[in-house]
Simulated assay, not measured.
Amino acid sequence: MLLYKQKKNQNVKGNRLLISINVLGSAGPIRFIVNEEQLVAAVIDTALKSYAREGRLPILGSDLRDFQLYCPNTGPDALSPWDTIGSHGARNFMLCKKPQPEKVPEEGKTPSGPAIPRKSAGSWKSWINKSLNLKIYSH
């Protein structure tokens, strides 16, 4: 009697790699096995699903188009989503959110928030003078 179901012999092209993906702001890396022929976009998707399944913080979301994968060996540019993950020869990566473009206010309109922070009303001496009508002189 067979106690376990035997897996079918699957023809997997390419080697399998154990990769580590550090998420900016998270406590530790996510590790999982991928096929070296897998696209970077598929790896980002798998990383986001694993991150959410583990309940990690900060909450990232699930849209892979909002994220970029960086490889420290290839320089400061993000990896193309259409590259294969094994083509870079690395196993450690960094997952970051894409920078959001800043909204430029239209002409004639003021920004929604205060542009200039308010200064304090004065020192504690002036507050006491105003509230108690006392005069405190400083040197």
Rank of each mutant, 00 (worst) to 15 (best):
residue 1 M to A: 13
residue 1 M to L: 12
residue 1 M to T: 11
residue 3 L to G: 15
residue 10 Q to W: 03
residue 11 N to E: 05
residue 11 N to W: 01
residue 13 K to P: 05
residue 15 N to D: 14
residue 18 L to E: 11
residue 20 S to D: 09
residue 21 I to G: 03
residue 21 I to R: 01
residue 22 N to S: 07
residue 24 L to E: 14
residue 25 G to Q: 14
residue 27 A to K: 15
residue 31 R to H: 14
residue 33 I to H: 03
residue 35 N to R: 11
residue 36 E to Q: 12
residue 37 E to K: 12
residue 39 L to M: 08
residue 41 A to E: 10
residue 42 A to I: 02
residue 43 V to G: 09
residue 47 A to Q: 02
residue 49 K to E: 04
residue 50 S to M: 04
residue 51 Y to F: 14
residue 51 Y to M: 03
residue 52 A to D: 09
residue 52 A to S: 07
residue 53 R to F: 07
residue 56 R to M: 09
residue 60 L to A: 10
residue 64 L to I: 10
residue 66 D to K: 15
residue 70 Y to K: 01
residue 72 P to D: 00
residue 73 N to L: 06
residue 73 N to T: 06
residue 74 T to E: 13
residue 76 P to F: 03
residue 78 A to G: 14
residue 82 W to A: 08
residue 83 D to E: 13
residue 83 D to S: 15
residue 84 T to S: 13
residue 90 A to R: 01
residue 92 N to E: 10
residue 95 L to E: 12
residue 97 K to F: 11
residue 100 Q to F: 10
residue 100 Q to S: 14
residue 100 Q to H: 08
residue 101 P to E: 12
residue 102 E to H: 02
residue 104 V to Y: 04
residue 107 E to R: 07
residue 108 G to F: 06
residue 109 K to R: 08
residue 109 K to N: 06
residue 111 P to F: 08
residue 111 P to W: 05
residue 114 P to L: 02
residue 115 A to H: 00
residue 117 P to E: 01
residue 117 P to C: 00
residue 117 P to K: 00
residue 122 G to Y: 01
residue 123 S to F: 01
residue 127 W to N: 09
residue 128 I to T: 10
residue 129 N to T: 07
residue 129 N to L: 05
residue 133 N to Q: 13
residue 134 L to H: 04
residue 135 K to N: 12
residue 135 K to H: 09
residue 135 K to T: 14
residue 136 I to G: 04
residue 137 Y to P: 03
residue 137 Y to N: 13
residue 137 Y to L: 15
residue 137 Y to H: 08
residue 138 S to A: 15
